[in-house]
């Protein structure tokens, strides 16, 4: 498949550069997911944007998922798109609370990270303006965590 060839090149280049810092590479239904260690999160994305074989110039989405039974309970997930090479990649990492912000790489990460902070409580180090966006400023708690009830606390 044409998509898989250019993505195979990307995965090879990532493995060359980061080696042990990549925890896993998986593929499901034509989508490739790469899991990094949180220490190389910012460096990996700078490489993915600037390297001419990868050329991921647009960030589509940045979000998180909550696995409360794990010690590193949050999974931070990023979807990337390259307009020139026409391929997509999903990158993941895991953290308990802090993760470096990707705003220096793509400016669109600004609101994605504010929303993830608002709903999950993950703190992005280096974000220029981290405050709540979808809920009121004085809201307590982080609704999308698995231990927050759907109906909230004051129905």
């Amino acid at each position: 498949m044409p998509m898989q060839d250019s993505l195979q090149v990307v995965v090879d280049r990532l493995k060359d550069k980061f080696g042990d810092n990549i925890l896993s590479v998986s593929e499901f239904r034509d989508e490739v997911t790469v899991r990094f260690k949180p220490e190389v999160w910012l460096e990996a994305h700078t490489f993915l944007k600037e390297d001419p074989d990868c050329a991921f110039n647009m960030m589509i989405d940045e979000t998180a998922a909550d696995y409360p039974l794990r010690p590193d309970r949050f999974d931070v997930i990023c979807h990337l798109l390259s307009l020139d090479k026409r391929h997509r990649l999903r990158t993941k990492t895991q953290t308990v609370e802090h993760i470096p912000s990707l705003v220096p790489v793509w400016r669109t990460a600004n609101w994605h990270e504010r929303e993830t902070y608002d709903l999950f409580g993950i703190i992005y180090d280096g974000h220029p303006d981290l405050r709540r966006i979808l809920l009121t400023e004085d809201w307590e708690g982080f609704p999308l965590r698995k231990d927050y009830p759907v109906e909230g606390y004051d129905m």
Binding site: L135, Y148, V150, E151, M155
Partner: peptide, 8 residues
């Protein structure tokens, strides 16, 4: 929308 953010 019976949840945390909607007024019932």
């Amino acid at each position: 929308y019976k949840n945390y953010s909607t007024l019932q």
